[in-house]
C-alpha cells in the first residue's frame, strides 16, 4: 500500500518536471520559459519530496526510527524550494529585462514604457 502511494507521488512529480523541461524547449523567449521552469519544477519537486516524506514516515512508524530524519529533511527541502524558487525566477526575469531582452510576441510591455519615462 505504501509503495503505491509513494510511486503515485513520484509519478505526479515526474510528470510536472517533464512538463517543465518541455516548456523550456518549446516556449519562444526567456520569460515564457521561466513560467514553465518555476511553476512546474516547484510543484514537481514538492510532490517528489512528499513521496520521500511518506516513505520515511511509514518506515519510522513501523519501528525503524532512523528513517524519521529522512522525512524531516525532505520536508525542510520542500519548504525552502517553495520559498526560494519564485525569488530566483524573479531575479532572472528582472536581470533579463534590465539587460535588454525584450519579451517576444508581446502584445503589451508596460515595464519598457515605464523605463522610457524615467523609471
Amino acid at each position: 500500500m505504501m509503495e503505491i502511494v509513494v510511486y503515485a507521488l513520484l509519478a505526479i512529480g515526474l510528470f510536472f518536471q517533464a512538463m517543465g523541461a518541455i516548456a523550456l524547449h518549446r516556449f519562444p523567449d526567456v520569460y515564457t520559459r521561466m513560467h514553465g521552469t518555476t511553476k512546474c519544477t516547484t510543484l514537481g519537486s514538492i510532490f517528489m519530496c512528499s513521496g520521500v516524506v511518506v516513505y520515511g514516515a511509514v518506515l519510522a512508524f513501523s519501528g525503524e526510527a532512523q528513517y524519521a530524519i529522512l522525512s524531516v529533511h525532505s520536508l525542510v527541502a520542500a519548504l525552502f524550494l517553495l520559498l526560494t524558487n519564485p525569488a530566483g525566477a524573479h531575479a532572472i526575469a528582472r536581470a533579463a529585462h534590465r539587460s535588454g531582452v525584450m519579451p517576444k510576441l508581446a502584445v503589451v510591455d508596460r515595464l519598457q514604457e515605464a523605463k522610457k519615462d524615467d523609471f
Binding site: 510536472f16 512538463m19 517543465g20 518541455i22 516548456a23 518549446r26 516556449f27 519562444p28 523567449d29 520569460y31 515564457t32 513560467h35 514553465g36 511553476k39 512546474c40 516547484t42 510543484l43 529585462h97 519579451p103 517576444k104 510576441l105 508581446a106 502584445v107 503589451v108 510591455d109 508596460r110 515595464l111 519598457q112 515605464a114
Partner: peptide, 24 residues
C-alpha cells in the same frame, strides 16, 4: 492555485497557445 498553474502551463506547452505581455 499552484496546481491550476501547473495544469495551465502543461496545456499551453501542448497546445502552444500563448499571447504574452508585461502588465502593471
Amino acid at each position: 492555485a499552484m496546481i491550476l498553474a501547473n495544469i495551465d502551463v502543461a496545456c499551453r506547452v501542448i497546445t502552444g497557445k500563448i499571447k504574452p505581455g508585461i502588465v502593471k
